[in-house]
């Protein structure tokens, strides 16, 4: 079927592909198995009693590549004090979303909103946008975009809200 000289090259290619593919028994990547809440099932009210940072992001959004690790760090450090980061992905492709999630803190609730249902409800104008909700479930502010130099100031706001209800 194939000329004699091509066969070794084809065999090598097959071996390479086999080596590159995941072996049976390998643990699945955390992001692939992570629980994701469909937008239709998301209810902000169910997080009452916690300070919620509701963040709209997407795998294709460049500033989100900085904001997501920052939010993950916030969740890791303040989760026990009552912080709940909710990362709403507006990706159309769930696989792309999961790939970008990487190893963010498992405490973050990830919501998948490919149709932009929640984005429309919250009148999203800029990617990324974060909404801050206090323990009583009241909206206490929003932040458009992400700039690393503003991260400390934003954390102070969040910590202030965390201390309000204690």
């Amino acid at each position: 079927m194939f000329p004699f000289r091509i066969r070794p090259a084809l065999a090598g290619l097959v071996l390479l592909l086999a080596a590159a593919s995941a072996r049976a028994g390998d643990p699945a990547p955390a992001a692939a198995t992570r629980a994701v809440v469909p937008a239709a099932d998301f209810e902000l009210a169910s997080y009452q009693g916690r300070v919620v940072v509701l963040d709209f992001w997407a795998s294709w959004c460049k500033p989100c590549r900085q904001s997501l690790p920052w939010l993950s760090d916030l969740q890791r450090r303040h989760g026990e004090k009552g912080l709940q980061v909710v990362a709403v992905s507006v990706d159309a492709d769930e696989a792309a979303m999961r790939e970008r999630l990487g190893d963010i803190d498992p405490g973050i609730v990830v919501v998948f909103d490919p149709e932009g249902v929640l984005a429309q409800q919250y009148k999203l104008e800029v990617m990324p946008t974060s909404f801050l909700v206090d323990r009583a479930g009241k909206a206490r502010g929003s932040h458009r975009g992400f700039m690393a130099k503003e991260a400390d100031r934003r954390e102070v706001e969040i910590v202030a809200l965390l201390e309000e209800g204690r």
Binding site: A58, C61, V90, D113, G116, V126, M127, T129
Partner: peptide, 11 residues
């Protein structure tokens, strides 16, 4: 285009 629809445009 809405902000959440800019997937392809951002490529």
């Amino acid at each position: 285009v809405q902000p959440w629809e800019r997937d392809v445009l951002s490529q």
